[in-house]
């Protein structure tokens, strides 16, 4: 990180951030990570922006309907044309 000294276990902590934002990190590692975050502004930014990244993809991920032409060809291929809504 920019102008930022990390301890030796930082790589392990970086690898744990994804589980952390999912709330799936084990208690011990979670406590260790939160101790680190309390004193490391840069890592807090990484966690916050990682959480926001995941959030943005989740909220924009509504499936769009299959374009009608494609759906028509699919039902034809499956010999289900009479049942297409």
């Amino acid at each position: 990180m920019i102008e930022h000294k990390h301890t030796g276990n930082c790589r392990e902590l970086l690898g744990a951030l994804s589980d952390y934002v999912d709330g799936e990190l084990g208690d011990t590692l979670c406590a260790e990570l939160e101790r680190h975050l309390a004193q490391c502004e840069n890592c807090r930014v990484v966690v916050d922006t990682l959480r926001k990244t995941v959030y943005l993809y989740h909220v924009t991920a509504r499936p769009e309907p299959v374009p009608d032409e494609i759906k028509q060809r699919l039902f034809k291929k499956l010999d289900l044309e009479d049942l297409k809504k």
Binding site: M1, R11, L14, V45, V46
Partner: peptide, 25 residues
Amino acid sequence: GDQEPLQIVDWCCLPEKEMMSQEAR
């Protein structure tokens, strides 16, 4: 492989409409 984060910018304060714009998508 893992790489260390290089971008340390806190953009979380951007307005939601900025983050959801067509361009952002």
